[in-house]
Design a protein around this nucleic acid. Structure first.
Length: 191
DNA sequence: CCAGTGATCAGG
DNA sequence: CTGATCACTGGA
């Protein structure tokens, strides 16, 4: 697998366009034992600043949310329900708190064959073996951190679905209805 | 349908 | 310090 890492500038776009752009990109995880695995990003959600009542930053800057105020490309990780590590990529400019939640990934082999889907952010976090200690505040465009995003060498085709976000009923309207969840369907790879 | 599980945060 | 909440998942 050749790795064409995506540069820092890519992450300065707003969270909604970044959420779309990340579909079909390759998430590379180099584990502590040296093993390397490859995952296509298949589902994302955008969280858009202090106004968005579904966004953690709607309550302002806290110990947890401070990394969302960093520049685009910063990794934001938090624990939910005491069990699941959620992986987010901060987007936009410094001091504009936006992020994209990675909700689904599909593992592919080194030769571009689909292996397994991990549908759901908790499952994705588990297979990636991420945690706050390991990656929170790191940069996703830094190839040395063990978790980075690149352009896949294989041509990937899919249909994009746009849906409301899940698990945010507490946010109220209009935020519940914002179609800021993006799913890649019918994924095929050409070698 | 619902319990598990612990960091985080507002409030005293 | 305490109690409530939670961008979820897996098993009745």
């Amino acid at each position: 697998m050749t790795e064409k890492i995506i540069e820092k500038d890519f992450y300065t776009q707003d969270a909604v366009s970044l959420a779309k752009s990340l579909l079909g990109k390759l998430l590379v995880r180099k584990y502590n034992n040296g093993e390397k695995r490859y995952f296509i990003i298949t589902e994302t959600e955008a969280y858009l600043g202090v106004e968005d009542k579904a966004c953690h930053c709607s309550k302002g800057k806290t110990e947890r949310t401070k990394v969302m105020y960093e520049e685009g490309g910063t990794i934001y990780i938090y624990l939910i329900y005491g069990m699941y590590w959620m992986l987010n990529i901060v987007s936009g400019k410094k001091d504009k708190p936006e992020a994209v939640l990675i909700r689904g990934i599909a593992e592919i082999s080194e030769y571009g064959k689909l292996i397994k889907h991990y549908d759901g952010p908790g499952k994705a976090g588990k297979v990636l073996e991420i945690s706050k200690d390991l990656f929170n505040g790191q940069k996703i465009y830094n190839k040395t951190t063990g978790l980075f995003i690149s352009v896949p060498q294989y041509k990937i085709s899919f249909k994009m679905e746009q849906l409301p976000r899940v698990g945010i009923n507490y946010a109220g309207e209009p935020w519940i209805s914002k179609p800021w969840r993006f799913v890649a369907k019918e994924i095929t790879l050409q070698q």
